[in-house]
């Protein structure tokens, strides 16, 4: 489902004459098969988020190759990647990234709008997805009127609403207390079971790592261990 080959990445800082190069990823190769939950662990600054951003197309690829669902996305333009991402990849962020001026319903409806789905079909799909994540009755709440756990559920619903093949999550439980975290992990497991969605989850948390079928360990921009449970 996800295939990464010899991916390297470096950031350049400073002006032309005093440029410093920070190597972040070195020759990262791994693959994730359909229906897997893979967790990505490692010290802070080891390059986990950078790897996820490259897979998601938020950063321009420098070297190496990425194939997602059989499509080589290595040379996609920004516009091509946007279109590809819309129907294939869902994102969950640590700090939810909801649009504050929109209700829970409107946030979940957004991917459907971008996809060009008609208003009636949108309504059915968005409400159904909100119900799936247990937010029935909260449709018209704004993010500021929801708890952290509820907000993260909205963002899960948003990632889910277009039936993606893959969901990429960057520390999804990072802002949640342990009880809410458990609920969310439960939800992820359920979605993986019922919909066969592939998950790639960055985490610092052992509880999260437990739900994964497999865990990847990053250290200083390289994968050092592929632990299979």
């Amino acid at each position: 489902m996800i295939e990464v080959k010899q991916l390297s990445h470096q950031f350049e800082l400073g002006k032309k004459d005093k440029k410093t190069v920070i190597p972040v990823l070195q020759d990262v190769s791994f693959s994730v098969t359909k229906g897997e939950i893979v967790t990505l662990v490692g010290r802070s600054g080891s390059g986990k988020s950078t790897l996820l951003h490259l897979i998601g197309g938020f950063l321009p690829r420098q070297s190496g190759a990425i194939t997602i669902n059989g499509t080589d996305v290595s040379n996609f333009t920004e516009a091509q990647f946007a279109e590809f991402r819309l129907g294939t990849i869902g994102f969950i962020f640590q700090n939810f990234q909801l649009i504050q001026s929109m209700t829970a319903y409107q946030n979940v409806e957004l991917p459907l709008i971008l996809q060009g789905v008609s208003e009636t079909a949108r309504k059915i799909q968005a409400l159904e997805t909100l119900e799936k994540v247990g937010l029935k009755g909260f449709e018209h709440h704004y993010p500021s009127e929801l708890s952290g756990g509820q907000q993260q559920r909205v963002s899960v619903a948003r990632a889910l609403v277009l039936n993606p093949l893959i969901i990429l999550a960057d520390e999804p439980t990072g802002s949640l207390d342990s009880e809410t975290e458990e609920d969310l992990l439960h939800l992820i497991k359920e979605l993986n079971d019922s919909l066969d969605i592939t998950f790639l989850i960055i985490t610092h948390d052992d509880e999260v790592a437990k739900i994964g079928h497999r865990s990847l360990m990053m250290h200083d921009g390289a994968l050092i261990d592929q632990e299979v449970k």
């Binding site: 998601g56 938020f58 920004e78 516009a79 946007a82 279109e83 590809f84 991402r85 819309l86 129907g87 990849i89 994102f91 990234q97 909801l98 649009i99 001026s101 957004l110 991917p111 971008l114 948003r158």
Partner: peptide
């Protein structure tokens, strides 16, 4: 920020 979120979801630059 909202534009960033929309782009992250998959809004094309054209849109």
């Amino acid at each position: 920020p909202d534009i960033g979120i929309m782009k992250a979801i998959g809004a094309s630059p054209k849109t």
